[in-house]
Amino acid sequence: MGVEQKLGNMGVVTTTLEQAVNWSRTNAMWPMLFGLACCAIEMMSAQSAAFDMSRFGMELMRPSPRQSDLMIVAGRVSRKMAPVLRRLYDQMPDPKWVVAMGDCASCGGVFNNYAIVQGVDEVVPVDVYVAGCPPRPEALIHGILTLHAKIQGEKLRDWA
């Protein structure tokens, strides 16, 4: 996306382009299967028929980071897991977003000790934090929709 940024703001063309690209990015975001602990079970529930995340475009959960856009860090990240998490984040192609699902991913949660990274934003930059222990599937979907709203507001110059 280099040329558009160099040409700068071209008025209505830029806005329409921004809207079109942001719309397409939100509607088919593929999450990466990164369930770690209890929040992963609620993420699986959100994917299942009762709460159905696929109506928001997240039908496929790709286990491979190279084929996904969204990393939902669901669960507690231990100090042993942190470098693995960073490596997987680096393997994701741009544009990519991170949702920190649950209290442990947001801030360390119940576990304030030697073994847990106190908030996954020490390892990867986070876009949306979803609170809860574990957050209800509806809360996760609300978090995803918040992320969609955030992406809709992205400007051309911020695109990766």
Binding site: S78, V110, N112, I116
Partner: peptide, 26 residues
Amino acid sequence: VGFLHTGIEKNMEAKTYLKALVMTDR
């Protein structure tokens, strides 16, 4: 293994018996 090690046992030693109950769920 150890990628999900949470230090629950040590953390429970720092809480009272009732408060430590919350950690057992997880």
